[in-house]
């Protein structure tokens, strides 16, 4: 990796040696997170929320319906076709079809 050019927007404190680009970005984020005030509370809230959503709701209550029943794309399409054609009318009578 090449040292970052002097025209870069990420500035260094004058007494520090010029670190590599990704190190600078890492420090930028690290210092930013360290200086947060209300942001700390917000991050805690986001993490709790994501845990509830992905580790509880998604796994235990919101499994993908088709993925949980079928393994192949062909099986899924056959099932959906069956679902949408299960009450196909036997006549062209617009007042209602006959249930299969």
């Amino acid at each position: 990796m090449n040292p970052i050019p002097s025209s870069t927007a990420l500035m260094n404190p004058p007494d520090m040696p010029s670190p590599r680009f990704f190190t600078r970005i890492f420090r930028f984020y690290l210092n930013g997170f360290r200086r947060m005030t209300v942001g700390r509370t917000l991050w805690k809230l986001i993490i709790i929320k994501l845990i509830i959503m992905f580790a509880v709701l998604k796994i235990f209550f919101f499994q993908d319906f088709l993925d949980s029943k079928f393994t192949t794309e062909d099986q899924k399409s056959a099932y959906v076709i069956e679902q949408i054609t299960q009450y196909v009318p036997h006549t062209n009578d617009p007042t209602g079809g006959k249930e299969k």
Partner: peptide
């Protein structure tokens, strides 16, 4: 921060409640 990921729940619902 409060609103982030609330939209993901809609995608959960698509897959579970509205699979067809």
């Amino acid at each position: 921060a409060i609103g982030v990921a609330t939209g993901i729940i809609l995608e959960f619902e698509f897959g579970t409640n509205w699979s067809n």
